[in-house]
Amino acid sequence: MEKIIKEANETLSALENTLSKFNTAHVNAVPFKGSWTAGQLAEHMILSNSGFLQVINGPVTETDKPADLMVKEIRKDFLNFNVKYDSPKEIYPEDRTYNQPELLKSLKEIREGISNAVTGLDLTKTCTAYELPGYGFLTRLEAIYFVIYHTQRHVHQLKNIYNELDSN
């Protein structure tokens, strides 16, 4: 339990810390062709992670498999930086000007919500509010690891965006 709390907090904090390094102009700057801005990436993470927080806190059922069955596969998929994924339209960020302090506030609230879920809920239960394409219905534990690995993937991308903009 301590391991997942620490990993979730460190990963979600890394997202906030990396975003906070950007100056105001760079938050909405396109770093290279085909890339999201830092603001769009942060908005994508807010949409995705807040959605997962709702699923984790939503209806559950008993689990008839190991609670961590999909964790290794999720990790393998999301930490393979050689593969590019298309975002589902529900969590695709708008092309608009983003406010960095508002993004950071939302990310912090989500981090706190994930921390509360990890410490207060039975992570072995299966979430029934949403079936994730390719993975099925996740346990709360798997859903939290999805948040962790998906966020780690985007922290990696956010650092690349920062380095590109900082070098110009």
Rank of each mutant, 00 (worst) to 15 (best):
M1A: 12
I4P: 06
I5E: 14
E7H: 13
A8I: 10
E10I: 01
E10F: 05
T11V: 03
L12S: 07
L12D: 04
L12G: 00
A14C: 09
A14V: 05
E16C: 01
N17H: 02
T18A: 04
F22W: 12
N23K: 07
N23C: 05
T24P: 01
A25F: 05
N28Y: 10
A29K: 12
P31T: 04
P31H: 00
K33C: 00
T37S: 11
G39W: 07
H44C: 03
I46P: 08
I46M: 07
N49Q: 06
S50I: 04
G51P: 14
G51Y: 05
F52W: 12
Q54P: 00
I56G: 08
T63N: 15
K65D: 08
P66G: 01
P66L: 00
P66Y: 00
A67F: 01
D68K: 02
V71D: 12
E73L: 08
E73R: 07
R75A: 13
K76G: 02
F78I: 11
F78E: 05
F78G: 11
L79Q: 01
L79W: 01
L79A: 01
N80G: 14
N80H: 10
F81D: 05
N82P: 03
V83S: 11
K84T: 12
Y85K: 03
S87N: 15
K89D: 15
K89F: 09
E90C: 00
Y92V: 07
Y92T: 14
Y92S: 01
P93G: 04
E94T: 06
D95V: 14
N99G: 00
Q100D: 02
P101S: 01
P101G: 01
P101Q: 03
E102R: 07
E102C: 00
L104W: 07
K105L: 09
S106N: 15
L107S: 04
R111Q: 09
R111V: 10
G113F: 06
G113H: 10
G113V: 11
N116E: 14
N116M: 13
V118Y: 06
G120R: 04
G120C: 08
G120W: 05
L123S: 14
K125D: 10
T126L: 09
C127Q: 12
L132N: 13
L138I: 14
L138W: 13
T139L: 10
T139M: 13
R140P: 13
I144Y: 09
F146E: 07
Y149L: 01
Y149E: 00
H154R: 04
H156Y: 15
L158E: 11
K159W: 06
I161M: 09
I161W: 08
I161Y: 10
I161V: 12
Y162L: 11
E164R: 11
